[in-house]
Design a protein around this nucleic acid. Structure first.
Length: 239
DNA sequence: GTTGAGCGTT
């Protein structure tokens, strides 16, 4: 994995986690490590990937040894262009185990700090409006573009009074037939399109004989093979 | 071959 040869989190007892967003899908931990390591001591860099495909999800986690360096890296690397894309570095808000994190430092669960009834404000007063107002505001231009689109939409409307109607194909039903409750693995892959793939009260031989088969022997072998295939593919059906 | 809001692994 993207670790340094260790499985799982090395040690988060005294490490600060930074969340890096807006990174390209081609950016790897090895590419971020030297970048973040230059600003401080990076303990580990982890990039969550998809279990199915294995591609990066577009964000990475960088763990620093000291909060000072982490904070510095956040202010320095936040907004840096990597691989042609601007990345966003910020302290992790949640932990790997769903634990609360303050400034990248893992804190005790709410149950523990629950007893702390001391000057506790119902809402955080650290709220700031510095979230989308960074170098290059895509939202700003987007808003303008959207406004234009809206105006245009109003002028050159479809003509009919059915804006809510969104039918991709009125003549064609997207899902006329719902998947049957049966465990249909591949309805189009198997040769049998009927319901029961393996009727226990029927002889495959008879069916084959009934069908036009120039070489019954070959058919028999094929049928046998098919049956075996079914057994292998869906042994559940058998019993 | 693609995409773009967000919070993590043995």
């Amino acid at each position: 994995m993207s670790h340094f040869g260790r499985a799982g989190p090395p040690d988060i007892r005294d490490t600060y986690s930074l969340l890096v967003l807006n990174i390209t899908f081609r950016t790897t931990a090895d590419d971020l490590f030297p970048l973040f390591d230059k600003y401080g001591k990076v303990v580990d860099v982890f990039i969550p990937r998809d279990r199915r495909s294995g591609d990066s999800r577009g964000f990475a986690f960088v763990r620093y040894k000291y909060a000072d360096e982490a904070q510095k890296a956040v202010e320095k690397l936040d907004g840096r262009v990597v691989d042609g894309r601007e990345i966003m570095v910020q302290f992790a808000k949640y932990g790997p185990n769903a634990e609360r994190i303050h400034k990248g430092k893992i804190m005790e669960p709410l149950e523990k700090i629950k007893g702390r009834s001391r000057s506790r404000s119902p809402r955080p007063r650290d709220y700031r409006h510095q979230s989308r107002s960074r170098s290059g505001s895509p939202g700003y231009r987007k808003e303008r573009g959207r406004a234009k689109d809206e105006r245009r939409s109003r002028s050159g409307s479809y003509g009919s009074a059915s804006p809510a109607r969104r039918s991709p194909s009125p003549g064609r039903s997207p899902s006329p037939r719902r998947t049957p409750p049966s465990r249909g693995r591949s309805p189009a892959g198997n040769s049998n399109k009927e319901g029961s793939p393996i009727p226990r009260s029927v002889s495959p031989r008879g069916r084959v004989a009934d069908s036009r088969t120039p070489s019954p022997r070959n058919s028999d072998a094929e049928v046998s093979h098919e049956l075996h295939f079914y057994n292998c593919l869906d042994p559940d059906v058998g019993g």
